[in-house]
Simulated scan of single mutants.
Amino acid sequence: MLNSNLLKLLLICNIFLFISASAGYQANPRIRFSTPTEVIASSEFLAQEKYGIVNRKAIAYMDRYIRVNEESLMMIRKKHQSTFRMMNRVFKKYKLPQQLKYLAIVESEMKPTALSKVGARGTWQLMPETARILGLEVTEESDERTSTALSTKAAALYLRDLHHEFNDWLLALAAYNCGPGPVYAAIKKSGSRDFWKLQDFLPAESRGHVKKYIAVHYHFEGKAGVTTQTAEELLASR
């Protein structure tokens, strides 16, 4: 019998798949949100000890992330409803999953002035050259990365391009963090285009980035919205 943590991850994956196939997706049926469900949700896969260990690590990582950041996530949920609605409109315009807005939480905790040590700035943590390519003005006098509306449009275009390049959303999310080069290197080294099989060949920050996104997605759109209920209770409520 599956333990409660594994059931919880399966629930996360199933909700992730269900929500990602929502109205925001139907406009372009060729785009499919690649999810852990295809890898995890089969008895044959779960029976493989090697990948079972990987899955338990993923469960622990996402569980811990939600627990540590739960108060902050609840505050963001309360404070940024109007910003989320704006982001929904942008992603809908570009026929992308509206749930991609949760990536902004992982990137910057929705802070327009956030600045990383490597120079990524704004809600979507865009690097200067990437931002310029995407049409944003980045000069000493003006930096449009700090405009949440303008940078959301730029991030949508970038995510759309990354998905077209990899045809897989989890790889696109990893590439958003580290760039396409390291993702292609991980594909070559692993011999797979499956995130869950190539993740150990990615930079640690990038594989964590994807798992944080899945955790935040679940926190905001999972039926419970918090981690205090057991997986069995959550499954029973579906």
Score class of each variant (00 low, 15 high):
G179E: 09
V138R: 05
T139H: 06
A156F: 01
A175Y: 01
P180A: 02
A175C: 00
L162E: 00
S147H: 08
A156Y: 06
G181H: 08
Y176R: 04
A154D: 07
S151L: 04
P180Q: 07
A155H: 04
P180S: 04
E141G: 13
E144H: 12
V138G: 06
T139D: 07
T139M: 09
A156Q: 09
S142Y: 11
R132V: 13
L159R: 05
G179A: 07
T139P: 00
K153V: 15
E137D: 11
R132P: 08
H163Y: 15
L159H: 03
H164G: 09
A149V: 06
E144K: 11
R160V: 05
L159P: 14
H163G: 08
L171H: 00
A155C: 00
I133G: 09
A154I: 11
S147K: 06
Y184Q: 04
N167Y: 09
E144A: 12
E165I: 09
H164C: 04
L150T: 05
T148A: 13
S142E: 13
D161K: 13
E165N: 07
A175D: 00
T146W: 03
P180I: 01
W169V: 02
Y158L: 14
V138S: 02
A172F: 04
L150P: 00
L134K: 14
E137F: 04
S142K: 15
N167R: 14
A174C: 07
L159F: 07
W169D: 00
T152C: 02
E165V: 01
P180H: 02
A174R: 06
L150F: 01
L150M: 14
L171S: 02
D143A: 02
F166G: 01
G181N: 13
C178H: 07
L171A: 10
T148M: 12
G181P: 10
R132N: 11
A174Q: 02
N177M: 03
D161N: 11
V138C: 05
F166N: 01
D161H: 08
A155W: 01
A149P: 00
L150Q: 12
H163C: 04
A172W: 01
D143H: 01
E137W: 02
E140Y: 03
A156N: 10
T148W: 14
I133C: 10
T152S: 14
A175T: 03
A155L: 02
I133E: 15
S151D: 01
E140G: 12
L171V: 03
S151E: 04
I133A: 12
S147T: 05
H164S: 09
L136I: 12
E141M: 11
A174L: 03
T146P: 03
L170N: 13
N167E: 15
Y176E: 00
C178N: 10
K153A: 03
L173S: 08
I133N: 12
E144I: 09
L173D: 09
E165W: 08
L134N: 12
L171F: 02
R145W: 01
K153N: 07
A156K: 12
